[in-house]
Design a protein around this nucleic acid. Sequence first.
DNA 1: AGTGTTCCTGCAAGTATTCGCAAAAAGTCG
DNA 2: CGACTTTTTGCGAATACTTGCAGGAACACT
Lengths: 143, 143
Amino acid sequence: MAELHEHNTATLLRSAGRRVTNARLQVAHVLQHSRGHLSASGVLAGVRQADGHIDQSTVYRVLADLRDTGLVAESRFGNSEATYEWIAGDDHHHLHCVECGETTQLSSDLVDRFDGAVLEQHGFRAENRHMVINGVCERCSVE
Amino acid sequence: MAELHEHNTATLLRSAGRRVTNARLQVAHVLQHSRGHLSASGVLAGVRQADGHIDQSTVYRVLADLRDTGLVAESRFGNSEATYEWIAGDDHHHLHCVECGETTQLSSDLVDRFDGAVLEQHGFRAENRHMVINGVCERCSVE
DNA sequence: AGTGTTCCTGCAAGTATTCGCAAAAAGTCG
DNA sequence: CGACTTTTTGCGAATACTTGCAGGAACACT
């Protein structure tokens, strides 16, 4: 199974025009096997735990690169660190409640429709792979 | 005029529940009188040029605070630095072309409609004061 | 496998951003 | 104008993130 994953990851990397390297596979593996968001240092820790070694700067570079290819989503909530999660090309959008801090999923439909409207009115092809919308969730809204 | 600006800024700060301090007025002043986006170090330079002195850490704190009150918008394009601009509570949205790097305005209507749809489907009250949408602009799209 | 080209990575800085704490300023009330 | 309470600020670290460069690895071709 690990190999299946790895194989898929390799394929994804290749079709994104990237070389299949140890560093990328390790980072991908850590993200794939962690639920929720992970910070850069969390990824680093994960790699070390798996007895691997990658330099800090490489982790940052790989994360930025995977973000650019759409395999990984980068979020910046209020915190001091950015966080990352494996999305493997699927669009992935968040509603982040500024009251309780909870994060939920936003349906892609709405975003697609929005992108469509942007294209129509501005001629701009939005590449909204990953949005973080701040606001107040239903539960907190009631109080 | 400078006084009028300052007066307005003071009022805005007060109604946001913030104290009117020298540091905040200076940062606001620099942002108000610069067109386009300014980095944190740019703000610092602006303050120094106006013969003022504020600590670096204060600039960051003030910027984060003004961002939270909605007076300032924070953007992170591909660059290493975040950039800021004075928006004084008005919503302000950007279309950022990843090809040519150009940034244009996105009409608030579309965003409002989107926010409405989010509320309807998710019960989530979006506070979209400032969005940055990445994508490809019309001109670059044609090539 | 051997060679060449191009992309990636580690290392060692460098820059950007945040934090803790004590002193100073802002707002409040009498 | 004081005295008092709460927020801000400066300073000095600490942490988060980026970059330049030279060696190492991936891939394509033979």
